[in-house]
Design a protein around this nucleic acid. Sequence first.
DNA 1: TAATCAAATGCAACACAATTGCATTTGAAT
DNA 2: ATTCAAATGCAATTGTGTTGCATTTGATTA
Lengths: 147, 147
Amino acid sequence: MKQPTNTPNHFEHLLDQHHLKKTAPRLKVLSMMADKETATSQPDLESLMNDVDRVTLYRILNVFEEKGIIHKVFDLNGTANYAICTSNCQEHRHHDEHLHFNCTQCNNVYCLNDLNLPAFDLPPGFKVNGFTLYATGLCPDCSKKQN
Amino acid sequence: MKQPTNTPNHFEHLLDQHHLKKTAPRLKVLSMMADKETATSQPDLESLMNDVDRVTLYRILNVFEEKGIIHKVFDLNGTANYAICTSNCQEHRHHDEHLHFNCTQCNNVYCLNDLNLPAFDLPPGFKVNGFTLYATGLCPDCSKKQN
DNA sequence: TAATCAAATGCAACACAATTGCATTTGAAT
DNA sequence: ATTCAAATGCAATTGTGTTGCATTTGATTA
Ligand SMILES: [Mn+2]
Ligand SMILES: [Mn+2]
Ligand SMILES: [Zn+2]
Ligand SMILES: [Zn+2]
């Protein structure tokens, strides 16, 4: 019986699991990022969380990333974007090894979790810990509008 | 007869090709980034170019990137790193489609140009323009020191 | 070689992301 | 209800990157 992964209940569970207090700002951050195919940029998060202090937001994002609840991707402009981890990420052990597609038009960063990536080799001496394929171009929405 | 690709002469050639004036700051930037397997971070460049104004450095980096002379990679900390393009990059048409390896220990970003990347597919609707494989872990040097 | 002028640089001011220290508040446990 | 570490809020600071404008410089041309 599969558990729902995007309900307020699940969020509280998530915080419990990682020994984090269930606070309003934290639950709000999680609900903001839930049910989205795309990552959310730091500026967007900041304006969505208008009643919460900027510093608090940064601290929440940092602790969520450390715990493996969310992961960070930088877009073409160097802006941080955040998305909830779907895979089995743990504290200091992320495995978000999916394709990140950054649309050059709308600037959205897509987490294409379902796509399986090809294997690759490295020159001797390099010890790989994690990887991601990063692609740029036009997303489906912007691709349509182009015509 | 292959031309050398890292000499002061070649740098002047490069600037000529792109209709850029051969100035001291520009040649200095090129020589800083030459003959390195790893990209150079903005902070490092800034301290290496201590006699040149910060703004000038930013403008040089921007124009070099536009012209396809260098490319930018963000490391794990979101810091911009720059490296000379080896492939056939043109104005607004970069094809630096190689592996970028970011060492979690020394934070160096390696441009592994010689490694050929596997092909991959995308869901329908996405129009790919460019891509890079981004891996993290331990570089050969740090891997050795670890033992 | 000297004059010319757009291109490039330098400087001051600014915008914004991110961090730090410390006082205050709050959630969970007793 | 009491307690206290954990979390938040606020003020100040650092660092990256940008913009406007005055000054300098390198390529062109007389
Ligand atoms: Mn992702
Ligand atoms: Mn590269
Ligand atoms: Zn788009
Ligand atoms: Zn290293």
